[in-house]
Every structure is written in structure tokens, then in C-alpha cells.
Simulated assay, not measured.
Amino acid sequence: MSVSEPLQSPLAREEYVEQTHFFTVLAERMTENIPAQEVLAAVREEVLATTKMPMAIDFLLAELRHQGEFAAGMRKLSHYFTPFQCYVMSEAENVRKRFDLRIGLLVLAREAMYRGSEHATRQGLFVYQFETLCRNRLGYDDGLEAMSRDPSYDATWSEWLLTVRRQVGLVEFADLIYVRSEFYRVQAEREERAGTSQTPIVLFGLQEGRIAWANRRKEPLLLFSALHRHLDYPAVPRPEPANPEERLLPVLARRVEQLEARLRLVEEEQRGGIDLSKFYAANQPKMP
């Protein structure tokens, strides 16, 4: 297979369009404190009936009512949701982790959007999924294992992902891409090293290899940023910085209520005194 060959996704493009809408709406309406059951019922009416998304929503709604989570239902729909999607959702629903559920839903929405695009590649999908693990501090061991079972990757890619699983933390991420790139093979042939040792199977193109080589001994986030700029790979959604005004609003509301109460007392005193009887308990027992 050519390195630049488009991504072969297991589902039709319209399915990923509806998945994108599904995850995006869930993330948006979470901020409005709408119950998930109501959101699922509303989204079910919005998605196309010609896709499998309505049936998936019905199943997820039933699982949500019985178990209270999405990940369990998504795992049972392994023909529709990938192992990586299930892993991201399970990590987002894990109360012991600091992975925001809204960010997890946006991660899945952007991944589905990329899968449905005409320019999607295995290289771009891998970089996006690995960046998701890196930026959100998810487990590399379970995450890469889930990625290796993604049907969009062939046997060569799956085997390499398990190799990355063993080497992550020991070998730089830039080196992992560089050694498996066309750029490395060209350099090896130029330096006449191709005949002395077996060149690894090429998984990345010239541009990915050149960018990885230029970002060796640097932070992996700089490599992700360079791949976004030069190859238009999708960027992982990140939490927005907290707005200090949102924290001040409840405090200001309480202060305003206190000031209003004080003003009412001052007005009553000016009209002839404060009626203290309204502060008495209604059922206070009488003294003998």
C-alpha cells in the first residue's frame, strides 16, 4: 500500500457525519445541564434514519438507563464504534481520572469528522489518536492496545502500534516516526547503509519523516504542532481556560442579595421602626 493512500474506514461517510453530530451535540448540551436521556432522545430525531445511528442511539439509551454510562454500550456495538472510541469514552466517564467528559466527546467528534473526510490517512489518524493520549495523560498501554485493534489499520500497522506500546517512554516519539519514514530510507540509501542492514517497513512519507527529524530531542507537542501546520492533521481539542468571571458571578449574586436585605431593613427603620415579630419562629412555644 502506498503511504499516501486514503484511509479505508470500516463505515460509510454518512455514518461518520452522523457520529460527528451525535458527539458534538452531547458535548454542547452538557453545559446546559440537560439530562443525557433527553439529549439522546432529541438527537435520535435529528440523525438520518437511513444510517445506523438511530439504532445505535436506542441501544445506548437503554444501556445508559440500566448501567448509567456510555462506554459499556459502545463496547457492545464493536461493529459500529472502534476500540479507541470506547477507550476514550471509558476514560472520560472514569470519576478517578481528570479527563473531562466534554473534552472526550469533542475528541470523538473530531476523530469521526476526520474519518469521514476525503483527505484522511492512517498517518493522520495515528498522530491524532496518539496526541489524544499524550495531551490528556491517558494510559499509553491500554490506549495503544485499543489503537492496534482499530480496523482502519492493517496488520503491519497493528504490529507496529504494539511495538510503539513497548517502546514509548524509552524511545522518543519523533524517532519512532523518523525511522519508519520514507525520509529515513532515502537517507539510508544516500549514505549506503541500506545494504548493510534491513530497512524497516515504511509507514510515513517524506514530509512526516523530515518534520520528525527536525523535532528530535524536543517536546513531542512541538512535533504535533508542526504536523498540524504542514500536513493539516487534525488537532486534539483542548479545554478552554477558566473564565474568572464565571467564578465571580455566584459570589456577586450573594453580595447583591445581602445588600438588598440591608436596604429593606434601612427603609423599614425610616418608616417607623423594624417589625421584629416576622423574625420570630412561627411555632415557638409560649413561656408558662
Score class of each variant (00 low, 15 high):
residue 148 S to Y: 10
residue 148 S to I: 04
residue 148 S to G: 02
residue 148 S to W: 03
residue 148 S to T: 05
residue 149 R to H: 12
residue 149 R to Q: 10
residue 149 R to W: 06
residue 149 R to V: 00
residue 150 D to W: 01
residue 150 D to V: 03
residue 150 D to T: 01
residue 150 D to G: 00
residue 151 P to A: 09
residue 151 P to S: 08
residue 151 P to M: 06
residue 152 S to N: 11
residue 152 S to H: 04
residue 152 S to D: 10
residue 152 S to I: 04
residue 152 S to P: 01
residue 153 Y to M: 02
residue 153 Y to S: 05
residue 153 Y to A: 00
residue 154 D to L: 09
residue 154 D to P: 09
residue 154 D to M: 05
residue 154 D to I: 04
residue 155 A to E: 11
residue 155 A to D: 08
residue 155 A to N: 02
residue 155 A to Q: 11
residue 156 T to K: 03
residue 156 T to H: 05
residue 157 W to L: 07
residue 157 W to I: 03
residue 157 W to R: 01
residue 158 S to K: 08
residue 158 S to L: 05
residue 159 E to C: 07
residue 159 E to H: 14
residue 159 E to P: 00
residue 159 E to Q: 14
residue 160 W to N: 10
residue 160 W to S: 05
residue 160 W to G: 00
residue 160 W to P: 01
residue 160 W to H: 12
residue 161 L to R: 00
residue 161 L to W: 00
residue 161 L to T: 02
residue 162 L to E: 12
residue 162 L to F: 00
residue 162 L to G: 02
residue 163 T to V: 12
residue 163 T to R: 13
residue 163 T to K: 07
residue 164 V to P: 02
residue 164 V to W: 12
residue 164 V to G: 01
residue 164 V to Y: 04
residue 165 R to S: 11
residue 165 R to L: 08
residue 166 R to S: 08
residue 166 R to K: 12
residue 166 R to G: 02
residue 166 R to F: 08
residue 167 Q to T: 10
residue 167 Q to H: 04
residue 168 V to E: 07
residue 168 V to A: 06
residue 168 V to W: 14
residue 169 G to R: 07
residue 169 G to N: 02
residue 170 L to I: 13
residue 170 L to D: 15
residue 170 L to P: 02
residue 170 L to M: 13
residue 171 V to F: 10
residue 171 V to P: 03
residue 171 V to I: 14
residue 172 E to P: 09
residue 173 F to T: 13
residue 173 F to K: 03
residue 173 F to M: 13
residue 174 A to I: 06
residue 174 A to D: 12
residue 174 A to L: 03
residue 175 D to T: 14
residue 175 D to L: 14
residue 175 D to S: 15
residue 176 L to V: 07
residue 176 L to Y: 03
residue 176 L to F: 03
residue 176 L to E: 06
residue 177 I to N: 04
residue 177 I to T: 08
residue 177 I to P: 02
residue 177 I to M: 13
residue 177 I to G: 00
residue 177 I to D: 02
residue 177 I to K: 07
residue 178 Y to V: 03
residue 178 Y to I: 08
residue 178 Y to K: 10
residue 179 V to F: 08
residue 180 R to Q: 03
residue 180 R to L: 01
residue 181 S to A: 04
residue 181 S to E: 12
residue 182 E to R: 11
residue 182 E to Y: 08
residue 182 E to V: 06
residue 183 F to V: 00
residue 183 F to R: 05
residue 183 F to G: 03
residue 184 Y to N: 11
residue 184 Y to P: 01
residue 185 R to I: 02
residue 185 R to L: 05
residue 186 V to M: 13
residue 186 V to W: 11
residue 186 V to S: 13
residue 187 Q to P: 01
residue 187 Q to Y: 14
residue 188 A to G: 01
residue 188 A to P: 05
residue 189 E to A: 13
residue 189 E to Y: 06
residue 189 E to C: 10
residue 189 E to S: 05
residue 189 E to G: 06
residue 190 R to E: 15
residue 191 E to W: 14
residue 191 E to M: 14
residue 191 E to L: 15
residue 192 E to M: 06
residue 192 E to K: 15
residue 193 R to H: 09
residue 193 R to G: 15
residue 193 R to A: 05
residue 193 R to S: 05
residue 193 R to L: 15
residue 194 A to N: 15
residue 194 A to V: 07
residue 195 G to M: 09
residue 195 G to H: 14
residue 195 G to L: 11
residue 197 S to K: 13
residue 197 S to G: 09
residue 197 S to N: 09
residue 197 S to V: 13
